[in-house]
């Protein structure tokens, strides 16, 4: 049995501390937004989870390509771990957005381009798990999973573009980069807000890496168990 790496334990501890600090920064340190009030504080975690989830999906597509090239099952474990953690993070993003949207837009959900493409992206990766569940053969599962993460990773930005053209006006705020006249709930960040925001990004990236690592280890253990089971039954 492999021993748990000390670096992973340290990363666990760091993640918990980072999450605590980030929560403090978001809830107490950052000033209250003038128009929206306290509900704007959701923003820090909303972006933190969204950022890491999208990176995770891209990472999973990369792992898929690497698996197809190397045929090393370790990359399949990396891929499934990345998709799983990212899917949960993205679900959190959507839910946090909903919580913010109710007071800001007066509705939990609207068919805005960003919201719609987020929902479709989430569905792509939900389908990924259904695909994996339907295949018993380990290598075939890995191959098909890899292919699907690649297709999904390419299709997600295309979906976003197509919906943007279909409904050119968006009410989703764009805080970073472009200014957006039609957005409802736009605000500009003060330096304190920026600190909390950047810290949340860092914190969620580290939490993501920690969860990913743990999940990959779990997947390896699972395949070890499967092999042992095979040995016993034979």
């Amino acid at each position: 049995m492999q021993k748990r790496p000390i670096l992973l334990t340290m990363l666990d501890v760091v993640s918990v501390i980072m999450l605590a600090i980030s929560t403090y920064l978001a809830l107490f340190y950052a000033p209250t937004e003038l128009v929206m009030g306290d509900v704007q504080r959701v923003f820090y975690f909303h972006i933190g989870t969204a950022w890491t989830a999208l990176l995770g999906f891209i990472f999973a597509a990369g792992a898929g390509i690497t698996y197809l090239v190397t045929k090393d099952l370790r990359w399949d474990r990396v891929g499934v771990a990345a998709v799983e953690v990212s899917t949960v993070f993205f679900l959190i993003t959507i839910m946090l957005g909903s919580i913010w949207a109710y007071p800001a837009w007066n509705t939990w959900w609207t068919w805005d381009p960003r919201l719609t493409s987020a929902a479709i992206t989430e569905l792509i990766y939900a389908a990924y798990f259904m695909l994996r569940q339907g295949i018993d053969d380990v290598e075939k599962r890995a191959r098909f999973g890899a292919i699907y993460t690649i297709i999904g990773g390419i299709s997600a930005p295309l979906t976003f573009m197509s919906i943007r053209w279909a409904q050119s006006r968006t009410i989703h705020p764009v805080i970073i980069g472009a200014e957006n006249a039609t957005a409802k709930g736009d605000f500009s960040m003060t330096p304190d807000m920026l600190t909390a925001f950047l810290f949340a990004l860092l914190a969620f990236t580290i939490i993501f890496i920690d969860l990913l690592w743990n999940r990959i280890r779990l997947e390896s253990k699972q395949s070890e168990v499967d092999q042992l089971k095979m040995k016993v039954t034979n």
Partner: peptide
Amino acid sequence: PIVISLLIA
């Protein structure tokens, strides 16, 4: 979910 962008376009 993959062809939705095609269908929308």
